[in-house]
Amino acid sequence: MNIDYVATTIAVLTFFGIWSLMAISLNIEYGVAGIPNFGKALFVSIGAYTTGVTYTRLLPILAGRDFIHPCGSTLADAIQLRSDIIRTMPVVAFVNFGITLVIAAVISGIIGFAFSYLVLRLKEEWFLALVLLVGGEIVRIFVRGYQPLICANNGISAVSQPFAFMGGRSASIAFLMLVLLIAFIAYVYSERLIRSPYGRLLKAIRENEDIARTLGKDVAKTKAQVMFIGSMIAAISGVLFAVNLGFVNTNDYVVTLTLDVWVMVVLGGLGNPKGALLGAFVIAVLDRLTAIAAIQMNMAGFNLEFNFVRFILFAVILLLMMRYRPQGILPEPNYTTEAHDNLTARTTGD
C-alpha cells in the first residue's frame, strides 16, 4: 500500500495541535497548580457536544434556512443541509464555528469553575479525581441517552471544519494552520502565565495550599479560576477535535482520552508548557504510527488488531516515565519573574 505522506503529516500535525491544547490545559491545572483533573474527557466532550448542537440548530438559522430535525427519518436531509451550507456559505460556516468556540468555552469554563467549588466539600484529595472522572461518564451517558441533543448513539456527522468549502488538501492545510495558531496562542498564554506573579501563586498553592492561605491567598478562588481557564482550553480543543473528525460521537470522550492527556503531560514534563507540547507531539506521532502499522498488518494478512497495542504502549510509557523520570523529558525549569534579573543586575552593579 502507498502511504500518502503529506496527508499523514497533515493529520499528525492537526492531532498534535488539538492534543497540545488538552495537554496545555492539564499542564496548567495539574502541572502548575496541582489540581488533579481526571475529567479531561468531560471538558473536551463539552466542546464536542456543543459543536453537535450548534451545527444542527444554529447553522441553519444563520444561513436563513429551515431547521431540519437532525435525527431519525430526516437525518439524510439534515446532513445534506449542513454540507450545503458549509460548502456554499463560508461566512456562515465561520460565524457558526466562531460562536461554537465561544459557547463551548464559556459553558465548559463555568462547569469547571462550579466543580472546583463543589469539591471543596470533599473529604480526601483524590476524591476530586474520582468525581471528575465520574462526572464525565454521567454527562456522556445522558447525552447518549437523550436523543434530541446529538441523536443519542448515532451522533452527528457532517460537522465539517469551516475551511471545507476550499475542498481537498488546501482545506486540511488551512484548518491545520488554524489549529496550530490556536494552540500557539494557548501555549504562549500558559508560558507567560507561569512566569508571572500568578504563576508564583499557583506554584505556592501546589506546594502548600494551607500556608498560601495563611499568607492571605484565596486558594479556593484561585483554583476555581484555574479550572475555568483549563476547562475553556479543553472545550476549545473539543470543538476542534469534533470538526476535524467531522462527527460528534459520545464514544470518543471516554476515560482513555483523559488518560492519553495524562500520558502526554507526564511524558513531556509536569509544569513545563514546552513539555506539554512535546508530549502531545510524541503521542500524536505514536498514535498515527500504530494506526498505520495496524492497517499495514491487516493488509499483510495478519489477523491481529494492532490498535490494541497502542493502549499497551501508552500505559507502559506512562509507567516507565513515572518510575524512572517522574519530572518528564523536559523538567520544569525554575521559573522566576523578571524581578530576579533586575535585582541581579542591580546588586552586581553596586
Binding site: 507567560r192 502565565l193 506573579p197 508564583r200 506554584k203 498560601a212 522566576t336 524581578a339
Partner: peptide, 24 residues
C-alpha cells in the same frame, strides 16, 4: 521549590499580576 525572593514577595497583598487576565 521557590526562590527566597519569590517566597518573600508572595504574601504581598492585592498584586495586579495575581489576576489571570493581567498576568500574561
Amino acid at each position: 521549590q521557590m526562590t527566597v525572593l519569590d517566597n518573600t514577595i508572595l504574601p504581598a497583598k492585592a498584586q495586579k499580576g495575581e489576576n489571570p487576565l493581567f498576568a500574561p
